[in-house]
Design a protein around this nucleic acid. Structure first.
Length: 311
DNA sequence: AAGGCCACCTGCTTGC
DNA sequence: TGCAAGCAGGTGGCCT
């Protein structure tokens, strides 16, 4: 669920509410929450305790917190997975069954808890080293430092990143031999887009998910990328999308963008543009939603099927 | 070696 | 009623 707009909402909340505070203690309630941390749970706690959170940075769906303004001693990398939440709250409430880690923070404005809550456990926390960005530009939104966490080095810049090279992205998509939706979801090509915003972008651009990247008309490709950027900006303005309260901001509140979704989760409902009935189709062991009228395939032989092989 | 598959994980919903 | 299957899906690692 958390895609770029949801993760950015969380990043901005962290930037407002925890920066300048120091980690007084770390309570790990489930070791697998730090499975991507190299030294194990004890090392994770040791490397975090006593450090001051100085910036909140995001690229795609990854967020990291700078510690003591000194990236050379590691940064706190977070990924929300499918169901992760970062909650900032007063020190009172006991942990919930899905609280995986709890950081007690102290500093200006009083003591708070930073809880990492994650029902489906695909999210993770880790203190990791950084590497310089190849282009020398800032690593992500929220800091001017030209570094990214090493586990994020293979993640491409996202569509809201002012340093994204759109011409290079279009060329890279063009070199792929796959369907356009697969390309949109490939975080090494462009980051931040997940299943929801991929479907919404393709609907806005009137493009079928299986359209081959290599032969898609340039105007169509530009429309898809522009639509993805546009729909994510709109979702961000609405505080993100939420279906079931799994996605919330740092204060536990849901966004409103689910009311604006045109096709995702709308199977059986009329397309708001043409009235045709929105369909749900199997795609990569999950689902794709589209309008069968607005997003028609040019010809069956020109589509890349869900399995990847061209017919 | 680029592209595709799938395990990982939990809880809710659906169907028999 | 109870159990099983289906579904949600981002990612790393592995396979071809």
């Amino acid at each position: 669920m958390p895609e770029l707009p949801e993760v950015e909402t969380v990043r901005a909340g962290l930037a407002r509410q925890v920066l300048g505070r120091t980690v007084e203690s770390v309570e790990l309630r489930r070791d697998s929450a730090v499975r991507r941390h190299d030294g194990g749970p004890a090392d994770f706690e040791a490397r975090l305790t006593g450090r001051t959170l100085t910036a909140a940075v995001r690229r795609g769906k990854y967020t990291w917190l700078l510690l003591d303004d000194d990236p050379d001693r590691g940064v706190l990398l977070t990924h929300l997975g499918m169901s992760g939440q970062m909650l900032v709250q007063p020190p009172e409430p006991p942990p919930t069954p899905h609280t995986r880690a709890r950081l007690a923070l102290t500093g200006p404005g009083g003591d708070v808890l930073l809880d990492f809550v994650d029902q489906r456990t695909f999210g993770s926390l880790a203190v990791v080293p950084v590497a310089p960005t190849p282009d020398g530009a800032p690593g992500g939104q929220g800091s001017a430092l030209p570094v990214v966490p090493v586990p994020v080095a293979h993640i491409a810049r996202d569509l809201l990143d002012p340093h994204l090279d759109r011409a290079a992205l279009e060329a890279a998509v063009r070199r792929r031999r796959t369907g356009i939706k697969r390309a949109l979801l490939d975080q090494t090509l462009v980051s931040g887009v997940g299943n929801i915003y991929a479907d919404e972008a393709l609907w806005r651009a009137r493009v079928h998910w299986a359209s081959p990247t290599a032969t898609l008309r340039r105007s169509r490709l530009v429309a898809v990328l522009d639509s993805a950027e546009e729909v994510m900006r709109e979702a961000l303005s609405a505080g993100g999308t939420s279906f079931d309260a799994l996605y919330v901001n740092v204060n536990g509140q849901s966004g409103y963008f689910d009311r604006a979704l045109a096709v995702y989760g709308q199977a059986g409902r009329p397309c708001r543009r043409c009235g045709a009935v929105v369909v749900r189709e199997p795609f990569m062991n999950r689902s794709s939603y589209r309008c069968p009228q607005c997003q028609r395939a040019p010809r069956a032989a020109r589509l890349v099927p869900p399995g990847g092989r061209v017919l």
